[in-house]
């Protein structure tokens, strides 16, 4: 058992290592690229944009005929996202709904990569000489922060655009404590600023880390379930306990996969709804 431990540790580590141009030693290093995250993000982006564009082309040419198959499916998603946006935001900004659709679909596809058997794509990658491959972009901090920071920047942009720079500053400094007395108000400004800044900055962080945490944990469970038969490999099939372990792993992986299907949908949904809420708040005057 003691001899097996490095093997287990190595296996887990393998699943936590990105395919990079060079090893990253510090927390932040902007000369390093995660090729796998970029590759799968772009691949899924193309999948989303391509399939929806295909439907869009068909939809615009078939107003008089009933939608069928994939077109119905896409229209259902679009209508659902539209109703979600309408529930929260009542303005005229034409960016929010497409943004929400993009986020929901893209994040869902990110998360869905988690349901691909954990070793399938990394093992395939090994056959062409790639040492590591992490296939789930939402288990990469860069991947999730890339989304949440973009949403954050859009929030700031629309806050300033709608309320003006002074209005935005006022929002940061005149709440939650305010007073009629000018002197007291002046004293409140730094306090308010600290509080509101934390609130503001906590949004992209929590948005990203909530998604990251859920999907990372889910992936970890799959990896740990794979450990059940790791030590024995095919040799385990010679004994009854080996078959038992394999059966147990298959069963647990299936059960967790079904449960995870719910999680990935909910996480994509939460990311979308919070994005809508943040952008709707950016358009609200106090």
């Amino acid at each position: 058992m003691a001899a097996a431990k490095p093997q287990i540790g190595g296996y887990i580590l393998e699943h936590l290592t990105f395919l990079t141009n060079k090893p990253q030693t510090s927390l932040v290093n902007f000369t390093v690229i995660d090729y796998d995250t970029v590759f799968f993000s772009v691949l899924l982006a193309v999948l989303f944009a391509g399939s929806f564009y295909w439907v869009a082309r068909r939809a615009s040419g078939s107003v008089n005929s009933a939608p069928r198959g994939f077109q119905s499916f896409v229209e259902m998603i679009v209508e659902w996202v539209d109703s979600q946006v309408r529930d929260v935001y009542h303005g005229t900004n034409r960016l929010i709904a497409p943004l929400a659709l993009t986020i929901f679909c893209w994040v869902y596809l990110f998360n869905f990569m988690d349901l691909v058997p954990v070793d399938l794509l990394p093992d395939l990658a090994k056959t062409v000489g790639l040492a590591h491959l992490k296939v789930v972009p939402s288990t990469d901090l860069n991947g999730v922060f890339g989304l949440s920071l973009t949403v954050f920047l859009l929030t700031i942009f629309y806050s300033i655009k709608v309320k003006g720079p002074l209005g935005f500053l006022g929002e940061l400094t005149l709440h939650p404590f305010s007073s009629k007395n000018k002197l007291v108000q002046a004293l409140f400004v730094p306090v308010n600023f600290v509080l509101e800044s934390v609130t503001l900055l906590a949004r992209p962080v929590s948005l990203a880390l909530r998604l990251f945490g859920n999907i990372f944990a889910g992936e970890m469970i799959f990896v740990l379930l794979a450990l059940l038969t790791l030590e024995h490999s095919y040799a385990g099939l010679a004994s009854l306990s080996g078959w038992g372990l394999m059966f147990l792993q298959a069963l647990l992986t299936f059960v967790w996969g079904v449960f995870h299907l719910l999680i990935i949908t909910i996480q994509a949904f939460i990311f979308m709804v919070l994005t809508i809420v943040y952008l709707a708040m950016a358009h609200e005057h106090h």
Partner: peptide, 9 residues
């Protein structure tokens, strides 16, 4: 870790 992937993303 945070790296160039963030910007690309």
């Amino acid at each position: 870790h945070v790296n160039l992937t963030l910007v690309i993303q």
